[in-house]
Design a binder for these strands. Structure first.
Length: 903
RNA sequence: GCCCGGUUAGCUCAGCGGUAGAGCGCCUGCCUUACAAGCAGGAUGUCGUUGGUUCGAAACCGACACCGGGCACCA
């Protein structure tokens, strides 16, 4: 903390200074041999191409808050960072670059391409990591991992081999989601259905017998060329006689059978469906049931292939128009109707996916999902909020096999070698292969099986990035080496924190693979959070152009303010959060409020330093219980309760509530009341020491409790107060001991009432038109409650200051002060003598009180008038209601009497 | 079609059975020696609609409406 204290907190220098201190000291480097209960969390690895967006900032803020809390609680914490290699995204960027240079990956070759990829990763791959540092992430940077690093890659190979040996990975020719833009298969999850305005074309297919036509409808006329049948519902009497007959496919001339299949809805359209098994998943199923041939007419680049005859070479969408035109010309087009339907799009490529027959590698997911479902019965992992567990379970229950091969170069190359000597040097869907960890081992295996002299070629494809991400919680801890120290100490991990949007992509894949390889669920808890939305409730994303750059906000308000704002917004369970942002002024009211809070704490500390006179919390020590004043006992009671409450909230992922509890305590109790009440005593030599001790204790402990939310600021202020060297870190301090003895709920109640009375008195001053500096000549508070009277009497000197009164009296009897202002709070009355009399103010005040009292009386009386209420409501509720009614009546009487006195 | 959320003050959201809360914004007055990024005071709501349960509903149950999301998908 600088010597000359600025009036406002400047976060920028402070934050980077502490980030450097934490890192150079290796403060968050985890030691498997250290003491403490283990607490481990692996961060969701951001995409290596990425740069920080609000989603990352949000996820980071939540994780770091929890992790720092657990560290303060004495856990042996491992928080492990890293990035993933993002096959498709990176490859897309690189291919774009190559294209701009007039070349291509094929021209430069695989080796050169990968060199470029690594060079590119080295250059831009660190961006997001440095941005995460700027948030103050307390991760173990020494353990930073990358999905393509040696350890993770070895884990991938091992995982593939084991799954394959267990028969859980297979290779085969199936209809897959083909993305023509990236030239690769993608998984079901990478396909997004989009509503599209299209057409439904009705065509006539002539019966081979020449005795008429069947009418079919399609949204994809170009697939007509690959039709191998037409299906009708078996119970559809209209077509029953035709089943088994054949049609002559227009444009192609192929004879195709009419088959009966349950899938067909007789009520939709004409009840006849053209079947293109090689280009539609439903048709594929129908074709399989009826033994229809598969004819592929679209190539991998999205153009029509040679089987499309005259249409060969045309793009599939150009061919669509050409087919329609041709059909129309030949008189086969019945009609064209506008039609809104869902089209599968590739998430990455942003183009319609082409269902394509292709030989790929798959994971047989059902046995893996079964493990997860079994664990689910035992609430492993536990989802917070619980409702997401249903989403997770539903997916695992209706799971489909996972296509894991990608026709890309950047990624984990599939550890399978084809014995090409067995298939004339070609790789076909029937080429035998061996799975091995390297070429030498593959050769050994192959020679054993096929004899010496075999020719091998490794599968050119790579694995889905999520395959390696799925191993993340254990591959990063040393798996498959089961003796690895990190794995033994920290696996299974304690917690996963991620967004609901990747429950299937990532969470479920991790649980499936962990179940298979470690026999355990990879984490005990899964804390699912929402997405960050903009002020119009749109999901923030780069492509939508509505993202807010967290770094801009950090520069403007500080990382702590951004973190605090994000966490504070998250009180609702797993709900999306909305972050306001004014694009014109580049400002956010939410973050600004958090920045103001930081400044408030800064100034409270400034005040303390001005009054501690070079003393520190350590030199002052704990206050002598005998010396404590009631205001001290009050704030220490509050401190103890906030200690308990905030810890409970942090512990149960109620982070937004923890933030609110601490915010309100710090601002509304410590700053507004405790510090105000300490001011007088800090000047009084007899009470100074105790006052200093209380102030130092409250602030020091508050900073520890707030540290998970605002790590830099609290580190700075804590050092400012304690004077500890930079080598001693708040981040590694223990959470303050909970002093249950300090809790005094009765005092808290009475104190709260006293505060309320001060408010009433101040309100009277204001309604009486008093100037801020003017003093009240006489203030009388009357109450019938002895405990409250005791508290008030002890507080007379404070009340005089807080209300600016010359004379304060506390009494059980109401004195005659007919021309005074009177206010009521609970069972107490406040009377205040103004220096000058303002009868109008007096009257309007009394009228207001009377109206309020009468309203209360009406409500309470009607409740009590209901005989069922007294019978059925709990006794204490009825009792309270009666007491309130009596009070309200007394108040009304009093107000009426006073009004009468005024005339 | 199936499944989840949400609907409370101008805005963002707490509250989840005992007579409506916070922050921001707004109004009034204050540069009161920690803080104008502040202090003091104030105004503001048929708690989406509609039935029901209950002595009592913003809260529990049922319908409906609207907003958001996920899954599946019929050519």
């Amino acid at each position: 903390m600088p010597e000359a204290l600025a009036k406002t907190y400047d976060p920028l220098g402070t934050e980077t200074r502490w980030q450097r201190a934490w890192e150079t000291q290796g403060a968050f480097h985890a030691d498997p041999n250290a003491a403490g209960e283990p607490f481990a969390l692996v961060i969701p690895p951001p995409n290596v191409t990425g740069s920080l967006h609000m989603g990352h900032a949000f996820n980071t803020a939540l994780i770091d808050t929890i992790v720092r809390f657990q560290r303060l609680r004495g856990k042996n914490v491992l928080c492990l960072p890293g990035t993933d290699h993002a096959s498709i995204a990176v490859q897309t960027i690189l291919e774009k670059q190559l294209k701009a240079e007039g070349t291509s990956k094929e021209l430069i070759g695989r080796e050169a391409f990968l060199e470029r990829a690594w060079a590119w990763k080295a250059e831009s791959g660190g961006t997001i990591v440095s941005q995460l540092r700027r948030l103050g992430y307390s991760v173990d940077w020494q353990r930073q991992r990358f999905t393509l690093d040696a350890g993770c890659s070895a884990a991938v190979v091992e995982a593939f081999i084991r799954l394959h040996d267990q028969g859980l990975i297979y290779r085969g020719e199936y209809l897959v989601n083909w993305c023509p833009a990236s030239g690769s298969a993608v998984s079901d999850l990478e396909v997004e259905m989009k509503e599209v305005d299209g057409f439904l074309w009705h065509f006539r297919y002539p019966l081979s017998s020449g005795s008429g036509f069947l009418e079919v409808a399609t949204t994809r006329p170009e697939t007509l060329l690959g039709d191998t049948g037409v299906a009708v519902n078996p119970n559809d009497s209209r077509y029953a006689a035709l089943v088994g007959k054949t049609l002559t496919l227009p444009l192609v001339g192929r004879e195709i059978p009419i088959v009966a299949d349950e899938h067909v809805d007789p009520a939709f359209g004409t009840g006849c469906v053209k079947v293109t098994p090689a280009h539609d998943p439903n048709d594929f199923a129908i074709g399989k049931r009826h033994g229809l041939p598969l004819i592929t007419v679209i190539a991998k680049d999205g153009t029509m292939n040679e089987a499309a005859a005259e249409f060969a070479g045309l793009d599939r969408f150009v061919a669509r128009k050409a087919v329609v035109a041709e059909m129309e010309a030949l008189g086969f087009l019945v009609k064209t109707e506008p039609y809104v339907h869902n089209v599968p799009y590739s998430d990455r490529g942003k183009v319609p996916v082409e269902p394509l027959l292709s030989t790929q590698w798959f994971i047989r997911t059902e046995p893996l999902a079964a493990n997860c479902r079994e664990a689910f019965e035992k609430v492993e992992p536990r989802f917070v909020p619980e409702r997401w567990s249903k989403v997770y379970l539903d997916w695992l229950t209706n799971i489909r096999d996972w296509c894991i091969s990608r026709q890309l170069w950047w990624g984990h190359r599939i550890p399978a070698w084809f014995v090409i000597s067995e298939t004339a040097g070609e790789i076909t869907s029937n080429t035998p292969y061996v799975v091995a960890s390297d070429h030498a081992e593959a050769l050994q295996k192959a020679e054993l099986q096929f004899g010496v002299g075999v020719a091998l070629e490794q599968d050119p494809d790579v694995l889905d990035t999520w395959f390696s991400s799925g191993l993340w919680p254990f591959s990063t801890l040393g798996w498959p080496d089961s003796a690895a120290a990190d794995l033994r100490r920290w696996y299974p991990t304690s917690l996963l924190v991620t967004g609901f949007d990747i429950i299937f992509f990532w969470v479920a894949r991790m649980t499936m693979l962990a179940g298979a390889f470690t026999g355990q669920m990879p984490f005990k808890d899964v804390y699912i959070h929402g997405l960050v939305r903009d002020e119009q409730n749109r999901k923030m994303s780069k492509s939508a152009g509505n993202g807010i750059d967290p770094l801009l906000l950090i520069e403007r308000y500080g990382a702590d303010a951004v973190r605090f704002a994000l966490v504070r917004e998250v009180a609702g369970a797993g709900q999306d959060i909305r972050l306001d942002y004014n694009r014109k002024t580049d400002s956010s009211a939410t973050v600004e409020a958090a920045r103001n809070f930081a400044n408030k704490l800064w100034n409270a500390t400034r005040f303390a330093l001005m009054n501690l006179d070079a003393e520190t919390p350590q030199s002052l020590g704990n206050p002598d219980p005998e010396m404590l004043q009631q205001a001290d006992r009050w704030i220490l009671s509050r401190l103890a309760r906030v200690n308990k409450e905030s810890a409970e909230k942090y512990e149960t992922y109620g982070l937004g509530e923890a933030a609110k509890v601490l915010y309100e305590f710090a601002w509304n109790e410590v700053c507004d009341w405790s510090i105000e009440l300490l001011k007088r005593r800090l000047q009084d030599p007899a009470q100074q020491r105790t006052a200093r001790q209380v102030l130092a204790k409250v602030l020091t402990e508050l900073f520890v409790m707030l540290h998970p939310l605002m790590p830099h600021l609290t580190e700075e202020l804590w050092h400012g107060l304690t004077g500890f060297p930079e080598q001693k870190l708040l981040a590694l301090e223990p959470w303050p001991a909970l002093d249950l003895q300090a809790i005094d709920l009765e005092l808290e109640d009475n104190f709260a009432e006293m505060i309320e009375l001060v408010r009433v008195a101040r309100n009277l001053r204001a309604t009486g038109g008093m100037k801020p500096a003017q003093k009240v000549s006489r203030l009388v508070i009357t109450s019938a409650r002895p405990e409250l009277l005791k508290v008030l009497k002890l507080a007379i000197p404070d009340l005089a200051v807080l209300i600016k009164a010359e004379l304060v009296e506390i009494s059980t009897e109401m004195p005659e002060m007919p021309r005074s202002l009177m206010g009521i709070s609970g069972t107490s009355q406040v009377q205040l003598q103004l220096p000058e009399q303002d009868l109008d103010a007096l009257r309007s005040r009394l009228e207001k009180d009377l109206a309020k009292a009468e309203k209360d009386i009406a409500g309470l009386a009607s409740r009590l008038a209901n005989p069922n209420f007294a019978d059925k409501a709990p006794a204490e509720v009825v009792f309270e209601c009666r007491a309130n009614l009596r009070e309200a009546e007394a108040q009304a009487d009093l107000a009426r009497k006073r009004l009468g006195d005024l005339g």
